[in-house]
């Protein structure tokens, strides 16, 4: 407790001092960072890279973009816990970073520390995840639109022009942003069109094995289906394993359409082979967007759009190329 109090006091004191200094200099802080060592000081707070393939790719992308060669002095901190992330943020503000890049573990609890950052003249850029805080507390937020991902996929499925859609819907961990967005689009479509029906709708919690059991259960019951809509690649893989066991053909021009999300490299390779039909991207490559924003701020331009939604593709097994696999596979 003592330590935390001390750290908080320090953070407050430094932020106040910096705030005063910023006033005195008339807001010349953003330039000084560049002039000093020529490097822009960036503090990056992310979730644990082991969390998922998405996160691993995300972290790798960040590390590749924010290097000394590119003019950045970057420090990285990882945690899946909000309170730890807040402690890292405080420390980075003390260390006088110019930019604080944040993928928050939790949406709540960030107001006071971001206020500190603002007072200290630190620019805050959110990536991947938004937070519940006043937008004035951050400069930009770069996120995926999960609902749009779902719509892209469902529109693709609509274009397939099946006479009847009998769908096995395998959901991610209930309540996660990805699950809500990706389920939402399909639910809307099924409710709107009498030709679309859900054979079963179950959560496999992103887990291949649970997905296999769910699909196995439908096969064992003898019900017919022609679409598997899995909300990530792992679950699509589990579903396919169950199909293979029962000798049900799947993929391009076969009995069952297989859809996944996240664009893992191995999943795109399945697309290339024609074993799956569709894979929706969840773009982990936010670093280039962040670089754009940092450059704009450095030039003194204002950011017109605070929330930037990234381009996300959906890949069709008929059109995918080896190039796509290499470029977009994570």
């Amino acid at each position: 407790m003592k330590k935390i109090k001390k750290a908080m006091a320090l953070a407050l004191a430094t932020s106040m001092a910096l705030g005063l200094a910023a006033c005195g200099n008339g807001g010349a802080k953003s330039d000084s960072g560049k002039k000093d060592g020529g490097l822009i000081k960036v503090g990056i707070i992310n979730n644990d890279p082991n969390e998922s393939g998405y996160r691993t790719a995300n972290d790798k992308d960040m590390k590749e973009k924010f290097t000394k060669e590119n003019g950045y002095d970057a420090s990285f901190s990882y945690s899946l816990k909000n309170d730890e992330q807040i402690a890292y943020a405080k420390k980075m503000i003390q260390d006088e970073v110019d930019y604080l890049l944040l993928s928050a573990a939790d949406t709540a609890g960030w107001d006071s520390v971001l206020q500190d950052a603002k007072n200290a003249g630190v620019h805050v850029i959110l990536f991947d995840r938004t937070i519940d805080a006043d937008p004035s507390l951050y400069d930009a937020s770069i996120v995926s639109d999960m609902a749009k991902e779902g719509e892209t996929a469902v529109n693709w499925l609509k274009d397939q022009g099946l006479s009847e859609y009998k769908i096995i819907h395998i959901q991610g961990a209930m309540g996660s942003a990805a699950q809500k967005g990706r389920s939402g689009a399909l639910d809307t479509q099924v409710a709107a069109d009498g030709n679309w029906s859900i054979v079963t709708q179950q959560t496999a919690e992103w887990n291949a094995e649970k997905a296999q059991q769910i699909v196995q259960s439908v096969i064992d019951s003898g019900e017919s289906f022609n679409v598997i809509y899995a909300e990530n690649d792992d679950m699509a893989k589990g579903a396919v394993a169950a199909l293979d066991k029962a000798n049900i053909s799947h993929g391009v021009g076969k009995d069952v359409i297989v859809m996944g999300y996240d664009c893992n490299k191995w999943a795109l390779e399945e697309l290339l082979k024609g074993n799956w039909n569709y894979d929706g991207q969840c773009n982990p490559f936010q670093a280039s967007y962040i670089v754009d924003i940092i450059q704009k701020i450095q030039k003194g331009e204002t950011i017109s759009e605070k929330t930037i939604i990234m381009d996300e593709k959906g890949f069709d097994a008929g059109k995918i190329t080896q190039e796509d696999v290499d470029k977009y596979g994570i």
Partner: peptide
């Protein structure tokens, strides 16, 4: 009662395998 039905049939690689809820 069909819960207890056990089928035998080929899988994707052509082996004859048992399937059904009990096997699962």
């Amino acid at each position: 009662p069909s819960f207890f039905k056990i089928n035998i049939g080929p899988d994707a690689s052509g082996n004859q395998v048992l399937s059904g809820y009990i096997i699962t």
